[in-house]
Design a protein around this nucleic acid. Structure first.
Length: 456
RNA sequence: GAGGUUGUAGCUCAGUAGGUUAGAGCGUCGGAUUGUGGUUCCGAAGGUCGCGGGUUCGAAACCCGUCUCCCUCCCCA
């Protein structure tokens, strides 16, 4: 290699062994969704800027990759805006398309656009890459795959329950030893703000509250003080840091905190309902946790908020989601409530890799390789190979008659278990040798009957 | 978007008071073994020292810029 080459920042290549592992994850997720009747859809990699901009909060727009206009359209560049330092306006004049930032907003657009072609409640899953102009860090990429499942057109909490079951099944299916599903509810958070009389500063309060697990109580208080919250408010929220016990016990404590606040109590009721239903389904409900400080979630969430973290590995959340009552309204379709979750496939990959949880079988290549002695004998090998492939075996015939040492090394490197020796010596005796590359054992078979003998 | 850090062979890394021809291990390739791999032994190939500029008689090393890596914010899968 004479020139230094690299993938772009925050992106990476996937070698065959990595693709096998990724497909293992995708398969676990898509099969789980399918078992619950979700249909797969796809949307374009990029959308009109207007579809995406403004949907993810003020910070969100900054992280959206913009696609530069090409050709004559560049003449539309608003140089005046540039002169005046209006960078946002200038950027908009240069770009009218953007790479999707997540799968939820494009899905909302999709539902609004195809409302007459869909049957509601509509359940879909979608596995595609998304792009964020974020600064790469451990477990954070600029291109990564999300695996979303959403239900729109039903406000039943049974959908939440179903999605949580799916999460549990996927993660259990992937043999993840431990994980915590944290739940909260936007209504509870709104209730907290109302009780404290800071409804106007709701999002400022939530952003800080959400950092509780990281910066702890004092850190939260310091930051809130810095943001101008009064000491009365700080005193008022004190009980939020003192919650103890299991899910229901915490709900009870919050009932006291939110007593008289209709919205907040409604949120608690929802949480309680979801938790009680899960009890019937999930064998290990202790992994379900009520976390009042969980505020994370995009600003379109209105109900339940979900976040999942893996145990015994330091990594951000591997799955997140929530209910959004009005997302499609932004695209002209009102009165349609949705709830969804999003698995972070790349993070799940990193977790499974770190904990060495991928099955050993993923390292295996084709099952059997026919060594190539000469064109004369390889024709017979092709016939056998065809027979085996028709029986769903992964089979290779080495392409040329290079020295055996090289062919065996090839088999070894590829993780091929069986190799077949069929050269002059074997052909003369109407035999072949089958060698087990793992144990090193080899056995002679009759060339006419080995297939049935070996296949059993 | 703000701050910090890193970059030498395919990989992991040595290499500074600036000084001939930039090294090792692993991997790769060839041979020992022209019909037996994963072990061993011998040998070989492989580097614009991230990129661009500057300081200097002389830069992998010092300075500036840029890109990348990793980290802290921000935000999030």
């Amino acid at each position: 290699m004479s020139q230094k080459v690299n993938t772009a920042k925050g992106t990476r290549d996937y070698l065959p062994v990595e693709v096998r592992k990724r497909e293992y994850i995708f398969k676990a997720i898509s099969e789980a969704f399918q078992r619950y009747g979700y249909e797969s859809i796809e949307t374009p990699s990029f959308e009109l800027s207007g579809t995406l901009l403004g949907k993810y909060g003020e910070e969100g727009d900054r992280l959206i990759f913009r696609i530069l206009n090409s050709g004559e359209k560049l003449n539309k560049a608003d140089l005046e805006a540039l002169q005046n330092g209006q960078l946002g306006k200038f950027a908009n004049s240069l770009s009218e398309k953007a790479l999707r930032y997540d799968l939820t907003v494009p899905f909302a657009r999709f539902v609004a656009q195809h409302q007459n072609e869909l049957t509601f409640p509509f359940k879909r899953y979608q596995i595609q890459p998304v792009w964020r102009a974020d600064r790469p860090q451990h477990g954070r990429y600029q291109e990564f795959y999300q695996c979303d499942g959403d239900v729109v057109g039903s406000d039943s909490l049974r959908n939440e329950v179903e999605l949580l079951q799916i999460i549990q099944q996927v993660l259990q299916g992937l043999k993840l030893p431990g994980f915590t599903i944290k739940l909260n509810n936007r209504k509870v958070l709104a209730g907290i703000a109302q009780v404290c009389g800071v409804e106007q500063e709701l999002s400022a309060l939530l952003v800080t509250l959400d950092k509780f697990d990281k910066i702890e109580k004092q850190g939260v208080k310091d930051e809130l003080t810095l943001k101008g919250f009064s000491s009365q408010v700080l005193d008022k929220i004190e009980p939020l840091f003192q919650l103890q016990g299991d899910f229901e016990e915490r709900v009870l404590q919050m009932r006291v905190f939110l007593s008289g606040n209709e919205l907040g109590l409604k949120g608690l009721e929802e949480l309680s309902y979801v938790h009680s239903k899960l009890k019937d389904f999930l064998p290990e409900r202790e992994i379900i946790e009520f976390d009042v400080t969980l505020a994370r979630g995009l600003n379109y969430y209105t109900g339940i908020i979900i976040e999942v973290k893996a145990h015994s590995v330091q990594m951000g959340s591997i799955c997140a989601g929530g209910r959004y009552d009005d997302l499609t309204a932004l695209f002209g379709l009102k009165g349609l409530s949705g709830v969804g979750i999003s698995f972070g496939a790349d993070r799940i990959y990193d977790v499974l890799n770190t904990l060495n949880l991928f099955p050993e079988s993923l390292n295996m290549g084709p099952e059997i390789l026919f060594l190539h002695f000469s064109e004369k004998h390889v024709d017979q090998c092709d016939i056998w190979a065809k027979y085996l492939r028709e029986r769903r075996k992964k089979v290779e015939v080495y392409p040329s008659a290079v020295k055996l040492q090289k062919q065996l090394k090839y088999a070894n490197d590829r993780g091929i278990k069986w190799v077949v020796f069929y050269g002059d010596e074997e052909a003369a005796k109407q035999q072949l040798i089958l060698k087990d590359m793992i144990t090193g054992d080899q056995r002679t078979y009759n060339a006419d009957s080995w297939l049935t003998d070996w296949l059993g």
